[in-house]
Protein backbone atom coordinates (compact mmCIF):
# COMPACT_ATOMS: atom_id res chain seq x y z
CA UNK A 1 0.00 0.00 0.00
CA UNK A 2 2.62 2.51 1.01
CA UNK A 3 4.89 0.92 -1.59
CA UNK A 4 2.82 1.84 -4.63
CA UNK A 5 2.76 5.11 -6.56
CA UNK A 6 -0.98 4.84 -7.16
CA UNK A 7 -1.94 5.10 -3.51
CA UNK A 8 -0.07 8.41 -3.15
CA UNK A 9 -1.49 9.74 -6.37
CA UNK A 10 -5.04 8.84 -5.38
CA UNK A 11 -4.45 10.46 -2.01
CA UNK A 12 -3.25 13.54 -3.84
CA UNK A 13 -6.33 13.52 -6.11
CA UNK A 14 -8.63 13.35 -3.10
CA UNK A 15 -6.86 16.22 -1.39
CA UNK A 16 -7.05 18.20 -4.60
CA UNK A 17 -10.80 17.52 -4.81
CA UNK A 18 -11.23 18.75 -1.24
CA UNK A 19 -9.34 21.93 -2.15
CA UNK A 20 -11.44 22.39 -5.24
CA UNK A 21 -14.62 22.05 -3.25
CA UNK A 22 -13.40 24.59 -0.74
CA UNK A 23 -12.49 27.03 -3.45
CA UNK A 24 -15.83 26.68 -5.17
CA UNK A 25 -18.01 26.63 -2.10
CA UNK A 26 -16.57 28.88 0.58
CA UNK A 27 -17.72 32.47 0.77
CA UNK A 28 -14.80 33.71 2.76
CA UNK A 29 -11.91 34.95 0.66
CA UNK A 30 -9.31 33.67 3.12
CA UNK A 31 -10.94 30.28 3.20
CA UNK A 32 -10.65 30.27 -0.56
CA UNK A 33 -6.97 31.04 -0.27
CA UNK A 34 -6.58 28.18 2.20
CA UNK A 35 -8.29 25.90 -0.29
CA UNK A 36 -5.81 26.97 -2.91
CA UNK A 37 -3.02 26.05 -0.52
CA UNK A 38 -4.56 22.62 -0.13
CA UNK A 39 -4.65 22.17 -3.87
CA UNK A 40 -1.04 23.24 -4.20
CA UNK A 41 -0.06 20.80 -1.51
CA UNK A 42 -1.92 18.05 -3.28
CA UNK A 43 0.07 18.74 -6.41
CA UNK A 44 3.27 18.85 -4.40
CA UNK A 45 2.47 15.49 -2.88
CA UNK A 46 2.11 13.92 -6.29
CA UNK A 47 5.36 15.50 -7.46
CA UNK A 48 7.27 14.16 -4.48
CA UNK A 49 5.64 10.78 -4.94
CA UNK A 50 6.79 10.66 -8.54
CA UNK A 51 10.28 11.57 -7.44
CA UNK A 52 10.29 8.79 -4.86
CA UNK A 53 9.00 6.01 -7.08
CA UNK A 54 10.63 6.86 -10.39
CA UNK A 55 14.45 6.89 -10.06
CA UNK A 56 14.93 9.05 -13.15
CA UNK A 57 13.01 11.91 -11.56
CA UNK A 58 14.50 11.64 -8.13
CA UNK A 59 16.39 14.89 -7.78
CA UNK A 60 14.39 17.00 -10.21
CA UNK A 61 11.08 16.24 -8.54
CA UNK A 62 12.38 17.40 -5.20
CA UNK A 63 13.64 20.62 -6.69
CA UNK A 64 10.33 21.26 -8.43
CA UNK A 65 8.53 20.66 -5.15
CA UNK A 66 10.71 23.25 -3.49
CA UNK A 67 10.02 25.68 -6.27
CA UNK A 68 6.29 25.12 -5.91
CA UNK A 69 6.60 25.90 -2.23
CA UNK A 70 8.39 29.14 -2.99
CA UNK A 71 5.79 30.16 -5.53
CA UNK A 72 3.06 29.20 -3.11
CA UNK A 73 4.61 31.44 -0.52
CA UNK A 74 4.69 34.32 -2.95
CA UNK A 75 1.12 33.60 -3.98
CA UNK A 76 -0.02 33.55 -0.39
CA UNK A 77 1.70 36.84 0.32
CA UNK A 78 0.18 38.66 -2.60
CA UNK A 79 -3.18 36.95 -2.31
CA UNK A 80 -3.57 37.83 1.32
CA UNK A 81 -2.45 41.38 0.68
CA UNK A 82 -5.12 41.68 -2.00
CA UNK A 83 -7.74 40.30 0.36
CA UNK A 84 -6.77 42.81 2.97
CA UNK A 85 -6.84 45.65 0.44
CA UNK A 86 -10.29 44.66 -0.79
CA UNK A 87 -11.50 44.19 2.73
CA UNK A 88 -10.42 47.69 3.52
CA UNK A 89 -12.64 49.01 0.74
CA UNK A 90 -15.67 46.84 1.05
CA UNK A 91 -15.56 45.98 4.77
CA UNK A 92 -16.37 42.36 4.17
CA UNK A 93 -14.33 39.22 3.62
CA UNK A 94 -17.16 37.58 1.71
CA UNK A 95 -16.29 37.10 -1.92
CA UNK A 96 -19.85 37.08 -3.26
CA UNK A 97 -20.29 40.62 -2.10
CA UNK A 98 -17.40 41.80 -4.21
CA UNK A 99 -19.43 42.79 -7.25
CA UNK A 100 -17.97 46.15 -8.22
CA UNK A 101 -16.47 44.71 -11.37
CA UNK A 102 -19.97 43.84 -12.51
CA UNK A 103 -21.27 47.32 -12.79
Amino acid sequence: MSGSLQSYLILSALLFAIGTFGFLARRNAIAMLMSIELMLNAVNLSIVAFGAFIPALRGDAAIIALMVMAVAAAEATVGLAIVIAIYRNSRTPLVDEYDRMRQ
Binding site: A13, L24, R26, R27
Partner: peptide, 17 residues
Amino acid sequence: VFHHQAWAGALAALGIG
Protein backbone atom coordinates in the same frame (compact mmCIF):
# COMPACT_ATOMS: atom_id res chain seq x y z
CA VAL B 1 -20.36 29.66 5.30
CA PHE B 2 -21.12 28.28 1.88
CA HIS B 3 -22.18 29.76 -1.35
CA HIS B 4 -25.54 28.87 -2.89
CA GLN B 5 -23.58 27.08 -5.56
CA ALA B 6 -21.92 24.82 -2.97
CA TRP B 7 -23.79 21.71 -4.10
CA ALA B 8 -22.65 22.23 -7.67
CA GLY B 9 -19.11 22.86 -6.43
CA ALA B 10 -19.27 19.66 -4.41
CA LEU B 11 -20.39 17.68 -7.44
CA ALA B 12 -17.70 19.20 -9.59
CA ALA B 13 -15.01 18.58 -7.00
CA LEU B 14 -16.17 15.03 -6.49
CA GLY B 15 -16.19 14.51 -10.20
CA ILE B 16 -12.65 15.82 -10.56
CA GLY B 17 -11.45 13.66 -7.64
